[in-house]
């Protein structure tokens, strides 16, 4: 988003899109803009590789600690929630691996900062969708963090405890990407709230709490009892961590799982688009 080596050409591309005559050419130009933004997002986060490596280390340490707790629980209750012991351990390291790409602790978008500083007005007058713009960058971010923050905890888990291979690798890949999109859809809404809420830190904390608890990061949602479990498994946060982990383990059918994620992705992105247009009107009419 900030002026960078790529920005000039991206804007040029967006302008082309406006001027270009036919809808086909326009779509092509828009596509290459967003593709470029994905690459830009990747590179932008690659600049902070030290932080990413440190994050991977922390995720691995927490993975080990949580794994021991789950092992103790599954020793006393084998096959709890339909998982056997190796499943539970794999689940633990998978969820740690999702923290980076799914940005489970929130943030990852510089939108909040730009709304607070008023710079977002510049973004809103661009002939490109604010939401798609940020989604593209976020996919690039997730791709980078997958490499740096997901692979190490998974490998460490495999070395220390042994880990099961993915039940259906292509389905898992799709589920992973959908998980990122759902996570983006949620974080985008939280970030846009800065248009209406003066100090948004409280909201960030509330989002953090909801996401860590209801995504399955702390404990698999399959062992949440009764109505709480049913509720947790139906909420969007389940689509970020629990469902991709289940698709990996093969403890759920890939079809319904992917449909569940796609549904929440569509709902959140739709709400995001709606909120963006309201925000745009607000900025245009009230001047920010």
């Amino acid at each position: 988003m900030r002026p960078g080596p790529d920005c000039g050409s991206s804007t040029a591309c967006a302008t082309d899109e406006l001027r270009s005559p036919g809808p086909r050419v326009r779509r092509c130009a828009a596509f290459s803009l967003y593709l470029r933004l994905v690459r830009y997002g990747f590179r932008k986060h690659a600049a902070y590789w030290g932080a990413a490596v440190a994050g991977a280390f922390t995720n691995t340490v927490f993975g080990v600690l949580r794994a021991y707790v789950l092992i103790a629980l599954w020793r006393s209750r084998p096959h709890l929630g339909g998982y056997d012991l190796p499943d539970a351990v794999a689940f633990c390291f998978l969820t740690q691996a999702f923290i980076g790409p799914m940005q489970v602790f929130g943030g990852g978008l510089d939108l909040t900062e730009r709304i607070r500083s008023g710079d977002v007005a510049l973004d809103l007058v661009r002939p490109a969708s604010l939401q798609l713009w940020h989604l593209s960058e976020d996919l690039g971010r997730a791709a980078y963090l997958f490499l740096v923050r997901s692979v190490p905890p998974t490998v460490a888990g495999a070395l220390l405890f042994g880990i099961v291979p993915p039940a259906d690798a292509p389905a898992y890949l799709v589920s992973f990407v959908l998980g990122v999109v759902v996570s983006f859809g949620w974080r985008y809404l939280v970030a846009l709230a800065a248009f209406w809420i003066l100090d948004d830190r409280g909201l960030a904390v509330a989002s953090l709490v909801l996401t860590t608890f209801f995504s399955g990061l702390m404990l698999p949602l399959v062992i949440f009892p009764g109505w709480l479990g049913a509720l947790a498994r139906a909420l969007p946060w389940a689509a970020m961590v629990q469902v991709p982990a289940d698709v990996y383990l093969g403890t759920t059918g890939p079809g319904p799982a992917l449909a569940f994620q796609a549904l929440w992705a569509a709902v959140l992105l739709g709400l995001g688009a709606l909120a963006t247009s309201v925000a745009r009107r607000r900025v245009v009419i009230q001047g920010g």
Binding site: L73, L219, I223, P225, L228
Partner: peptide
Amino acid sequence: AVIWVIFANTRSL
């Protein structure tokens, strides 16, 4: 609540 969920499933850890 995490501890509560664990002990909803087992009597001792």
